[in-house]
C-alpha cells in the first residue's frame, strides 16, 4: 500500500512537470493551430540558461529565472519571426516538419556549445526528502514544482478569461479570420502566444533542472512526453493538458513499478495510441469534423 501511495506521489510530481510543458504546446496549438515539435528543446535551452545564470554566474535564483525567461522568449520569437511565420504561409505540414528539424538542430547544436557532460543543478530547498510516514516521502523540489504548476495554471486561466489580450487569443483560436475582421491584431496575438509558450517552457526548465541533470538530450524525451500529454488530454485544451500530464506521469510511474521498468517509455506511447485510436480528439477535446 505504501508503495502504491509513493507511486502516486511521484507520478503526480512527474505529471506536474509534463503538465507545464504540455500547457506550452497546448497554448500554441489552441490559439494558432500549429504544433511546435521544438518546445522540448526550448525547455532545454531554458534549463541551460538557468544553469548558466544560477550556478556558473552565481546570480540569485529569481534573477536567473527572469533572465532565462527573457532570453528564451527572445530566442523563440526570433525563430518565429524568421522561420516559422514564413513557412506557415506555405503549409502547416511544412511548419510541423520544420519544427522537427529545428528540434534536432537545437538539440545537437546545444551539444556542440554546452558539451555532452551532465551538470547538476542544486535543489532550492535542499535534497533531503520530506518524510510523510516511514515509507512515504516527497522531495521538496517536487513540492515546489507542483506549486508552480498550480500557480501557472491559475494565472493562465485568469489571463485567458479576464484580460482583453486573453479574450482576443480565445477569439483567434475560434476563428482567426473572423477575429482579425473584428479588430484583433493577429500578428500581435501570435507574438504573445509564442512568448507565453516560451516562458512556460523556460520556467519548467529552470524548476526541473535539479530533478533531471542538466543535459542537452533531456529536452527530447521530456518534450516528447509533454506533447503526448497535451495530445492525450485534448490538444488545444488547457484543462486537458493538465489532466494529460498528470495521467501520463501516473501511468509511467505505475507501469514502471508494477509491470516493467525497461518498457517505461513504451507505456506513454501505448496509452497515447490507444487514446488516439479510440478518441482521436483526446480525453477532454472537442471533436472537430472534417468529413464530407
Amino acid at each position: 500500500m505504501s508503495i502504491l501511495i509513493q507511486c502516486l506521489i511521484s507520478g503526480i510530481s512527474v505529471g506536474a512537470i509534463y503538465a507545464i510543458i504540455a500547457l506550452a504546446y497546448t497554448i500554441l496549438f489552441g490559439t494558432l493551430k500549429t504544433a511546435n515539435f521544438a518546445m522540448g528543446d526550448i525547455y532545454m535551452i531554458g534549463m541551460f540558461l538557468g544553469f548558466t545564470f544560477y550556478v556558473t554566474a552565481a546570480l540569485p535564483f529569481i534573477v536567473a529565472l527572469i533572465l532565462s525567461i527573457i532570453i528564451t522568449v527572445i530566442v523563440l520569437l526570433l525563430l518565429e519571426r524568421a522561420i516559422f511565420r514564413p513557412i506557415l504561409k506555405v503549409s502547416s505540414l511544412y511548419l510541423f516538419i520544420t519544427t522537427i528539424g529545428m528540434a534536432t538542430f537545437l538539440r545537437n547544436a546545444a551539444q556542440l556549445v554546452f558539451g555532452t557532460e551532465a551538470h547538476t543543478f542544486p535543489a532550492l530547498f535542499g535534497s533531503t526528502p520530506i518524510q510523510i510516514t516511514d515509507n512515504i516521502s516527497i522531495m521538496p523540489q517536487n513540492l515546489i514544482i507542483i506549486g508552480v504548476a498550480v500557480i501557472l495554471v491559475i494565472a493562465l486561466f485568469i489571463f485567458m478569461k479576464k484580460t482583453k489580450t486573453g479574450l482576443a487569443m480565445s477569439s483567434v483560436s475560434m476563428n482567426a479570420f473572423a477575429a482579425s475582421l473584428m479588430g484583433v491584431n493577429y500578428s500581435r496575438i501570435t507574438v504573445i502566444t509564442y512568448a507565453i509558450a516560451a516562458a512556460l517552457a523556460s520556467i519548467a526548465g529552470v524548476f526541473t533542472a535539479p530533478i533531471y541533470t542538466v543535459t542537452t538530450t533531456v529536452g527530447a524525451s521530456i518534450g516528447l512526453k509533454a506533447l503526448i500529454a497535451a495530445v492525450m488530454g485534448g490538444f488545444g485544451n488547457s484543462a486537458g493538458a493538465i489532466l494529460g500530464g498528470v495521467l501520463l506521469g501516473l501511468i509511467e510511474t505505475l507501469g514502471a513499478t508494477y509491470i516493467s521498468s525497461a518498457y517505461k517509455d513504451a507505456f506513454a506511447f501505448i496509452f497515447l495510441i490507444i487514446i488516439l485510436f479510440v478518441r482521436p480528439q483526446g480525453i477532454l477535446g472537442r471533436k472537430s469534423i472534417f468529413k464530407v
Binding site: 520544420t98 528539424g101 528540434a103 534536432t104 538542430f105 545537437n108 556542440l112
Partner: peptide, 8 residues
C-alpha cells in the same frame, strides 16, 4: 545538426 539545419 546539419540534417536539422538542412530541413529548416
Amino acid at each position: 545538426t546539419i540534417y536539422g539545419a538542412l530541413i529548416v
